[in-house]
């Protein structure tokens, strides 16, 4: 395991440095450049790494809860639920502090995801591909509700722009919440074994003495909190939580105690890579990372689906 970590850490360092160096303002050895680095570049890089870590971990936990390899917060309605909560806050309590916005977003994420998992129980699973399909349709329904409400209050354009993952506005003092999300991912590591077991199903877990419901709810809360924080802070990056855990699973299997650190690391790398790409394709203009990730993520997702099919 350590053998993989060493080159990956080097890669991480390399990408982080590139991320700090790339930007529309050319860097020189002066005070202004130092300011830019400290206020914009380093926070941005940190935000990217933290988001990458937390969204991938949220993805793999979601997969254990739903017992399906093709789910993640953006295909289970979690993201949309958090957005709905945030929308309600924006409309009715626009002056509320970020903390309250975050709280409501997280609570609605919990409710929305719980509803999805409830729906899953009613769906007789004739095919493993039906779960993500139901999830995507459910997310679409919530999206329709969001569109409906946002249109009435003339917030339609704002809300969809807000949600799209975009790190160009990250500044020192505006991203710190993401440390919370990453912290949750670290906490998840300590329950890794329990989460792996829960992923085997209720019967198996109970038979092995695990308190299934507690672990289930615990996993649900972690996923919702991470999603809430990400949505409020920097927007959503589609398919990240899906492709990273799947690829890592192909390489080292599904024992979370072994794979979780690798998932976190790979998530950070992928996000950094995509953001650098997003900044350089149309230099000096920036493309939102969600767009780049959308292309790369869906491409990898398709590859995984087809691989599973044959």
């Amino acid at each position: 395991m350590f053998r993989i970590f060493l080159p990956l850490s080097l890669l991480l360092a390399l990408l982080s440095i590139s991320s700090i160096l790339i930007g529309s303002h050319a860097l020189h050895f002066d005070a202004k450049s130092l300011d830019i680095i400290l206020i914009s570049r380093v926070p941005r890089t940190l935000a990217l790494i933290l988001t990458g870590i937390s969204l991938s971990v949220a993805g793999v936990i979601m997969q254990q809860l739903a017992r399906n390899k093709f789910v993640e917060p953006s295909t289970t309605g979690t993201v949309e639920s958090a957005t709905l909560g945030m929308l309600v806050m924006l409309i009715f309590f626009p002056a509320a502090s970020v903390f309250y916005k975050l709280l409501v977003a997280c609570i609605s994420a919990v409710i929305g995801t719980a509803l999805f998992l409830l729906i899953l129980r009613r769906v007789p699973l004739r095919s493993g591909f039906l779960v993500p399909l139901v999830g995507i349709m459910y997310a679409g329904v919530l999206g329709a509700i969001i569109t409906f409400i946002a249109y009435k209050y003339d917030l339609l354009q704002s809300i969809w722009v807000w949600i799209q993952g975009d790190f160009s506005m990250v500044l020192r003092g505006r991203y710190e919440l993401l440390w919370l999300a990453a912290g949750l991912s670290f906490i998840a590591y300590f329950s890794a074994d329990k989460l792996t077991l829960a992923g085997l199903g209720k019967q198996v877990s109970i038979n092995l003495g695990l308190n299934y419901s507690v672990v289930f709810v615990w996993g649900l809360i972690i996923v919702s909190l991470i999603t809430g924080v990400t949505v409020v802070n920097s927007g959503v990056i589609p398919f990240l939580g899906l492709v990273v855990p799947n690829i890592v699973s192909l390489l080292v299997g599904d024992n979370l105690r072994r794979s979780l650190p690798l998932i976190a690391m790979s998530g950070a790398l992928l996000v950094l890579f995509c953001d650098i790409l997003a900044r350089t394709i149309n230099f000096p203009y920036e493309i939102p990372i969600a767009t780049v990730m959308g292309i790369i993520g869906s491409f990898i997702f398709l590859f995984l689906l087809l691989r599973r099919a044959s």
Binding site: F129, L133, T291, S298
Partner: peptide
């Protein structure tokens, strides 16, 4: 493909949808 699964087909369609949407977004930018 001989053993196609209809749900897989649809899921692929959905993901392709995201794929196309992202490429369009890129071109629009």
């Amino acid at each position: 493909k001989k053993h196609y699964n209809l749900y897989l087909l649809i899921l692929i369609g959905v993901v392709c949808g995201v794929f196309f949407h992202s490429i369009s977004a890129l071109m629009m930018r």
